[in-house]
């Protein structure tokens, strides 16, 4: 195995670089640009039981060192993902993909995951209990340890693949939620989803985003994400996937030192569609520069 390889819940990844859900579609826009098989894996667009259009536009706002989005989980629904998106993806991607799933009740999360579970292409579930852009679901499960644990248990009961719970940073104590997921049987934790934010248009004096608020992501949130990854990794014994503002090979290494076993790259894909390829190409030289022989060995090194 190479010096960049890591293990994520029992599955070997060639490298720790994973495009984050919602910034990489179902992969094929990027497959037109580069061979996406160089990636460790990628987390596909947040999928729900029923098709969703999402929120009304405008649903994007530019910010200093980041952006706000209020897409609201637009996706074709799990049945179409299985019948159309995954077969299409199999033509471009031969590795295991991460199935990102959202829902509006524990039962709904479970039903969606149950449908996806038999798909060979799927290596892991990333259960999003942290979307800030939908009402009556998403983030509300991730801001209460009991609700997060309930979703974890419901999904674990109907799946045979590793279940990674994706957490929201919009909480007072993220560690208690991570621990509740671990106690409920989660195989991993990924964090952070976006930070709730907003912008106001000075000309109209109204919110830029039609939905008023949205999720803030991009390099501006990196220090917050890093801190939370550090806290959670220090408190749980299951693997942690770190994300939030990662833009470079250096950021990947910093996240891993904080305790991340793998690292997701989100907003950066939207402004530089080749960023994940560049990070993977640059990692060996950056590892040499900091005298790192194997990425596996540095996970949690800062603790």
């Amino acid at each position: 195995m190479g010096k960049m390889s890591i293990d994520l819940c029992g599955i070997e990844l060639e490298n720790p670089v994973i495009p984050a859900s919602g910034t990489f579609g179902y992969g094929y826009e990027f497959a037109e640009l580069y061979d996406i098989n160089i990636l460790g894996s990628f987390s596909f667009k947040g999928t729900t039981l029923a098709p969703r259009f999402g929120n009304p536009p405008p649903r994007i706002a530019d910010c200093t060192a980041g952006l706000i989005n209020a897409v609201g989980l637009q996706n074709p629904g799990v049945d179409k993902v299985i019948s159309e998106e995954l077969p299409k993806l199999s033509r471009f991607f031969s590795k295991k993909v991460i199935a990102n799933v959202s829902g509006f009740s524990a039962e709904e999360y479970a039903e969606t995951c149950q449908k996806l579970n038999p798909c060979d292409q799927i290596g892991w579930f990333e259960v999003n209990v942290s979307c800030p852009n939908v009402h009556g679901g998403g983030m509300s499960f991730g801001t209460d340890p009991k609700a997060a644990a309930e979703v974890t248990r419901a999904v674990k009961k109907v799946t045979t693949k590793p279940v990674i719970m994706k957490l929201s940073p919009n909480v007072t104590d993220i560690v208690s939620i991570a621990k509740a997921c671990e106690d409920a049987g989660a195989d991993g934790i990924s964090l952070i989803n976006t930070l709730l934010g907003m912008r106001i248009d000075l000309k109209t004096k109204r919110p830029v985003i039609a939905n008023t608020m949205g999720g803030f992501s991009g390099p501006a949130i990196f220090p917050v994400a890093l801190r939370m990854v550090y806290q959670v990794a220090g408190a749980v014994s299951i693997p942690v996937v770190g994300m939030g503002g990662v833009c470079s090979a250096e950021d990947v290494i910093e996240m891993m030192l904080a305790g991340a076993a793998a690292v997701e790259v989100g907003a950066a894909n939207l402004v530089d569609p080749f960023i994940c390829q560049k990070i993977i190409e640059e990692l060996p030289a950056v590892m040499d520069k900091y005298k790192i022989n194997s990425l596996k060995e540095i996970i949690g090194g800062a603790h």
Partner: peptide, 27 residues
């Protein structure tokens, strides 16, 4: 015209509804 995130179809930021399904203004 719509406010866009990526401009190449990845983020779904600029979607609109049409009589022939959801479309991304950018793609």
């Amino acid at each position: 015209e719509e406010r866009m995130g990526c401009g190449f179809g990845a983020c779904m930021g600029c979607s609109c509804k049409t009589l022939t399904g959801n479309k991304r203004i950018c793609k």
